[in-house]
């Protein structure tokens, strides 16, 4: 899919204040911990306290974005709100609707929840850009992504519990007849491999992942998807300022770099301090690493549960990027 008349107007993020380092994982011997830090690359992550939850993080991120863009008096321009999470606080009512109320957005709004994982940022951008095409000039779509995965981890499961962190991000899309930004995307899905990453509906159930199968998938399908995308969309890699991969695992990202022959300085990571925050990871990375930089073209690549993967190529020239806030 290709888009011209919508651009990303702003990106803001929020993470919990509480930092958790690898000390809490008693299953790690000191040698294993070092090996984990060297390969997977996570030294600490942010986890919610008991009085925090997915909705609170989401609200804080969305409110920050509205303030950062100084559009408190123009909330009626927000015609659509998309909420992305795999750890919503409840089944009914759905969270985008709750956020519409908390943020005092107009009642005349399309509110949609998306149950999407680590490729959720790409899926929600594609959805948001598509929905935006029906809007009038200067109208907006708000995307809010929030995850509280720490509450759904089995702390004795070595293959999942040290990987994930909590956080939220908010993105504003604006339809504009005056600002032309060329964006393109391809999304991919393979439901037959769904069991590789799973979490039951019941709130006491914990996240389960087949690490080796997921790693296979990243080296095969995700790499193929990236190549197909750049070929089909005729993207010149040297024109891309930054390649923003979902922050799943440093070892995987460095494999991508080698296999795809991408320059190190164009690949950003912050998994060291935040872990894998699922759909939040790419906007959190932008907020953390690019808030003080002039950025033009980015190629974003998400991949994860589903299994699902996708790429999105756009420009952040007209985007106000704010640094992460702490809740």
């Amino acid at each position: 899919m290709d888009f011209k008349d919508t651009h990303i107007e702003g990106i803001s993020s929020v993470v919990p204040k509480r930092t958790v380092n690898n000390d809490i994982f008693s299953f790690f011997s000191s040698k294993e911990r070092k090996f984990f830090e060297k390969t997977v690359g996570i030294f600490e992550r942010r986890w919610t306290d008991d009085n925090q939850n997915t909705t609170k993080l989401a609200f804080a991120a969305a409110l920050s974005l509205i303030k950062d863009l100084s559009i408190q008096d123009d909330l009626n321009s927000i015609k659509q709100i998309i909420f992305v999470s795999q750890t919503p606080d409840q089944q009914i009512p759905f969270t985008s609707n709750i956020l519409q109320g908390m943020l005092q957005l107009s009642n005349e709004i399309l509110a949609i929840d998306m149950n999407s994982g680590c490729s959720g940022f790409i899926q929600s951008l594609t959805s948001g850009f598509s929905l935006n095409s029906g809007l009038n000039n200067n109208e907006r779509t708000l995307i809010v992504l929030s995850e509280n995965l720490s509450k759904r981890l089995n702390l004795s499961d070595k293959s999942t519990s040290p990987l994930f962190g909590d956080g939220a991000a908010a993105i504003m899309l604006k339809k504009s007849n005056d600002i032309i930004v060329n964006s393109s995307t391809i999304n991919n899905s393979d439901g037959l491999k769904g069991k590789a990453i799973s979490l039951d509906l019941d709130f006491s159930s914990k996240l389960a992942m087949n690490g080796a199968e997921v790693f296979d998938f990243t080296l095969n399908e995700v790499v193929k998807g990236f190549k197909t995308f750049t070929e089909k969309k005729a993207i010149n890699l040297s024109d891309v300022d930054y390649f923003l991969f979902h922050q799943s695992n440093n070892f995987i990202i460095s494999q991508f770099r080698t296999i795809l022959n991408l320059p190190q300085y164009k690949i950003l990571t912050n998994i060291q301090n935040f872990g894998n925050t699922s759909s939040v990871s790419i906007p959190l990375l932008i907020s953390d690493k690019l808030h003080d930089k002039k950025v033009n073209t980015v190629l974003m690549s998400g991949y994860g549960s589903g299994l699902n993967w996708g790429n999105f190529h756009t420009s952040l020239t007209h985007c106000k990027i704010s640094k992460p806030r702490f809740l």
Partner: peptide, 16 residues
Amino acid sequence: EWDSMTAMVLIGFVNQ
């Protein structure tokens, strides 16, 4: 030492 991390490194080793 064998676990999901070493499996990942082994896959990466063969690939590279």
